[in-house]
Design a protein around this nucleic acid. Structure first.
Length: 265
DNA sequence: AATAGCTCCAACCGCACGTCC
DNA sequence: CGGACGTGCGGTTGGAGCTAT
């Protein structure tokens, strides 16, 4: 059984806030503060709203000294740097940027900065990833030689799972980078201009032949970079080596390998 | 001018965590 | 100790406005 909702959705107002509601909330909080209880606040303020909705409206919009939009190049650099270090910890990132809300930064990231960041990272990858791939020494993986079943229920298993998934995508990403005949920036800007939503990246057939589409390119790059952000450059390097190996020598075996892992993933 | 596609962002949702009783 | 409750967070959605065809 799920947890009971914090308020009755059938009776409280939802959706966009009216100017009157904004004024009622602003006026009440400026006069009385939040009282440390958002659940009872809407009733006291004469608002037919959920407490969570009031809190969100105050923190993200009505609170004094909030900056909306107008992100500068310096802001971009700060956000990208922090994202690279800590990932999508929007509240932490917002805490480093006075006047900015986590929601604002998150939206800005998802609509603008993400593409900029990915383009930067892809440029780095292609610059450090020559077309002539080099077979790495074996074993290339962190967990090579270990029995996956032994990792089940251990703290490492989640990382192991992610490594397998990441490896799968690194293979595709490596192929993608190598298959690009035009410049990366051209491909990236082309992809960025078309908003592509792929609902389930697992549906991708990683071993299929044919030309790569821009959405696939970005999809793969996205995951590649997420893992990079999560585990750092060394992790990316290892995965790149793994991908090189599979792509160069073991494509067929790799497919079987991943199929055998499927029950564990 | 119509409309289909895209971008942007306010707001919602559900989960995790901390606190209180 | 554990259940109830409030809060904070990241992910996601819906729709208004904009742009391209």
């Amino acid at each position: 059984m799920g947890r009971a909702p914090c308020c009755d959705r059938a009776t409280v107002k939802r959706g966009p806030w009216s100017p009157d509601e904004d004024e009622a909330l602003r006026g009440y909080i400026q006069k009385n503060g939040t009282g440390g209880n958002w659940i009872t606040l809407p009733h006291k303020a004469g608002l037919n709203r959920c407490g969570k909705s009031c809190r969100l409206r105050w923190l993200n919009y009505l609170r004094p000294d909030i900056k909306h939009g107008g992100f500068t190049e310096d802001d971009d650099t700060t956000i990208i740097s922090l994202y690279h270090q800590i990932g999508s910890k929007w509240s932490v990132i917002a805490s480093k940027m006075p006047g900015r809300t986590d929601n604002d930064i998150k939206n800005y990231w998802n609509t603008k900065l993400k593409k900029k960041y990915m383009t930067q990272q892809l440029s780095n990858i292609t610059a450090s990833h020559p077309t002539q791939m080099v077979a790495p020494q074996l074993p290339p993986a962190f967990f090579a030689g270990m029995n996956p079943e032994e990792l089940v229920n251990t703290a490492d298993f989640a990382l192991y799972q992610e490594e397998q998934i990441a490896t799968k995508y690194m293979i595709s990403a490596t192929e993608t980078v190598d298959n690009l005949t035009g410049s990366v920036s051209d491909e990236a800007s082309s992809a960025a201009s078309s908003s592509v939503t792929v609902e389930n990246y697992n549906c991708m057939n990683w071993s299929r032949s044919g030309d790569w589409q821009s959405d696939e390119f970005f999809l793969l790059s996205d995951h590649q970079l997420e893992f990079d952000a999560a585990y750092g450059d060394n992790y990316l390097l290892n995965l790149t080596n793994m991908a090189d190996y599979w792509v160069n020598f073991e494509v067929v075996k790799a497919e079987g390998f991943f199929n055998s892992l499927a029950p564990l993933l």
